[in-house]
Amino acid sequence: METAAFYIFAAIAVIASLFVVGQRNPMYSVMLLITSFGALAGLYVLLDAPFTAVTQIIIYAGAIMVLFLFVVMLLNVPREEPAPSVAAGLLGPTGLKIGAVLSGLLAIEMVWALSRLPSRYFNPDQAGQVSDVRNIGQVLFTQHAFAFEATSVLILVAMVGAVVVARKEH
């Protein structure tokens, strides 16, 4: 049952993510990304981490994607130009070549990082404890207090920056 659920959620996440990139209508891309986030939340539930799942939905699917949608709607980008074929991309302009190189590097990095993860992190018995709201709060405000505060200042700076950029000159 759980294995079947895992494969269903994983398949939805992967297929939706692929279509996000393959889609020409930005509105559909946004919706598919939300679908992918929902499937990821399902995976978190299967990992016995309901708090992580719910925060995933609230923050990513609920807050950030609404902003994305807002921007897409305001700009009203009807449709992107069809992308040239893969072969043309590799031989095409420099920007595309750099993109291809970077995505190749990213794939290599991912494989490298995953292969070096020690297996002791995957202890299923600890999953419930780690995702407990009380524990997360405790760790966040004691052990990682500095990183937490630094992140909040960073977000504040980004907000002020956005206001300055968006403000009309008088």
Binding site: M27, M31, I34, P50, F51, V54, T55, I57, I58, A61, G62, A63, V66, L69, F70, M73, V133
Partner: peptide, 25 residues
């Protein structure tokens, strides 16, 4: 009875906005 019920309600109601936004667009 979910042990994060309040947050679940918050998450689901925050998804409800998509219905309205998409209908509008």
């Amino acid at each position: 009875d979910v042990n994060v019920a309040v947050l679940v309600i918050f998450a689901i109601t925050s998804m409800g906005v998509y219905g309205i936004v998409l209908a509008g667009w």
